[in-house]
Design a protein around this nucleic acid. Structure first.
Lengths: 223, 223
DNA sequence: AACTAATGTCAAAGAAATGTAAAATTATTG
DNA sequence: CAATAATTTTACATTTCTTTGACATTAGTT
C-alpha cells in the first residue's frame, strides 16, 4: 500500500484525489495545512507527498524547503499541484526540490501516472540497515557502527558514507557527490569532498581504507 | 558533464535544446531518428534521453519499449517531448516507462529544471560495459578486468585502452590518440603515446599483445 | 651484414592530484 | 549571546601519475 500525504486546502480537490487514489492501491492522508502535514510526516511513514503551494499558515514552498533540508525526509518524492502556473513558478518549485509540478486544473489520471512513474524509480526507502564488511548503517535512526562499535558521524560524513555504500564498487565523481550530498546548487569547492573523505576514513579506523580514490575521477567504496 | 541524448526530427527544436543545454554543463548528442539514437545508446554513455514521439522510421513509443525492456539501459531516465498532448497520450507515455512528459510547445527553462530534478534523484547511472576477448571495461566505473582479474590502470592508460577497444581493428595515428586522450591543446611529444602503450601492454599481461603497432602510422587493437 | 629508422622499455625528473592538519567560517544549541 | 560543533578553506605534505630522454631492440633496406 502506497502512503500518500496530501497537503491541500480545497476540500473538493482533497476528496477528488483521495477518492481516485483509493482505487489505485494508495492510502491517502490529507491535511488542509502544511503544519499538520509536517507533524504527520515526522511521525509516520510517507511514500510520496502531493503539495499545494497557496496555503494558509505555513506556505507550500516553506514546507518544501523544510522537508528538503531535513535528511530524514529528503528522500520522499514531492509532486507540487498548484494553480501557480507561470514558467517561473514551475522552475522555482523544481529547483527547490520538487520532483514534478502539475498545474491546476489537472487530470487525475495523469497525476496517478506521474505518481507511479516517480515511485517506479524511487522504491520508497524504508528504514533499513545497510551492512557490509562490519560496517552497519541504520538508515532509520542514522546510526553507524563499525565492528559493533558506535561511530559518531556528522551529517555530511553520514550522507557521504551512505552514498558510497549504497552502490559499492561504483565510482562517483566529486561533482556527483556534491550534488547528492551537498545539493545541486551548492557552490562548494570540490576539494571539500576530499576533506570529508579524509575525516570519514579516520573515524572508520582500519575499515576506513575501503574508500578508494580514483585518480582524476573521484571515489569509490571498494568493498 | 551530463550526457543528453536527443531524438527529435525537427532541426529547430534540436538546435534549441542543444544550444541551451550546452550552457548547463550538458553535452547533447542529437539524432533525427530513433534507430540511430538506439545505436548511439548501445555504444556510448548516456545520462538522460529526450525523446520525441512522432518520428520517421522507428517510432518513439517503440524506442521507449525497447529501451525499457533492455536491462542494460533501463536505468536511463527518459523525458518525452511531444506534440501529442491528450491526457491519454501522456498517460501512455508515463505508463510505458517515461520519467516525465512535456508537451510542445515547451519552455526550455522548465525542461532544464526537469532534467535537473530527475538527475538529482538518480546520480547512479547504469554503466556500460565493453567486453572483448576477456578484457572488460566498465565505462561507468573506470574499472578494467582481464580474465576476471582486476587490473588497475591510470587515467591515461584507461582512456587509451577505451579508445582502442571502442573501434577494434581500426588504426589510430599517434596524433589522433593525443587529440582524443590528451586533448587538442596538449603540447605533448608523440612518443609519450608509445610509453603509455608500453605500460598498458605490460599491465594487461599476456592479453596486452593485441595492441599492435602499425609502423609509421600508430596503433590499433587487433582483436 | 651493415645501416637506417622506427618502436619498445626503463628509470629519473617533473607535474599533478590527493591526503591531512589546522585555521577560518558558519550553524547550532543551551 | 556565548559555547560548541560542523563545515569549509587554506596550506603544505605526500603520493601517484605523466613525461622525458636515454638506450635497447626490432624491422626494413641496400
Amino acid at each position: 500500500m502506497i502512503k500518500v500525504l496530501v497537503i491541500e486546502d480545497h476540500e473538493e480537490i482533497r476528496d477528488l484525489i483521495s477518492y481516485n487514489l483509493s482505487k489505485e492501491n494508495c492510502e491517502t492522508i490529507c491535511f488542509d495545512n502544511a503544519n499538520e502535514g509536517l507533524i504527520h510526516l515526522e511521525n509516520n511513514d510517507v511514500d510520496i507527498i502531493l503539495l499545494d503551494l497557496m496555503l494558509p499558515g505555513l506556505k507550500g514552498m516553506q514546507f518544501l524547503q523544510i522537508v528538503r533540508n531535513n535528511k530524514k525526509f529528503s528522500g520522499v518524492p514531492i509532486i507540487i499541484i498548484s494553480a501557480k502556473n507561470t514558467e517561473q513558478d514551475i522552475i522555482n518549485g523544481l529547483e527547490m526540490g520538487a520532483d514534478d509540478y502539475l498545474t491546476k486544473p489537472f487530470s487525475i489520471k495523469i497525476l496517478i501516472a506521474k505518481i507511479n512513474a516517480i515511485l517506479r524509480r524511487n522504491p520508497a526507502i524504508k528504514s533499513k540497515v545497510i551492512s557490509i564488511n562490519g560496517i552497519n548503517i541504520d538508515t532509520g535512526n542514522y546510526t553507524v557502527t563499525v565492528d559493533g562499535e558506535d561511530v559518531s558521524l556528522t551529517n555530511k560524513e553520514y550522507e557521504l558514507l551512505l552514498m558510497l555504500l549504497k552502490h559499492p564498487k561504483r565510482v562517483f565523481t566529486r561533482n556527483q557527490i556534491l550534488n547528492a550530498v551537498w545539493g545541486y546548487e551548492s557552490d562548494v569547492y570540490t576539494r571539500t569532498v576530499d576533506t570529508h573523505v579524509s575525516s570519514l576514513r579516520k573515524k572508520l579506523g582500519d575499515k576506513g581504507s575501503f574508500i578508494k580514490s580514483v585518480p582524476k575521477i573521484g571515489y569509490r567504496a571498494d568493498i
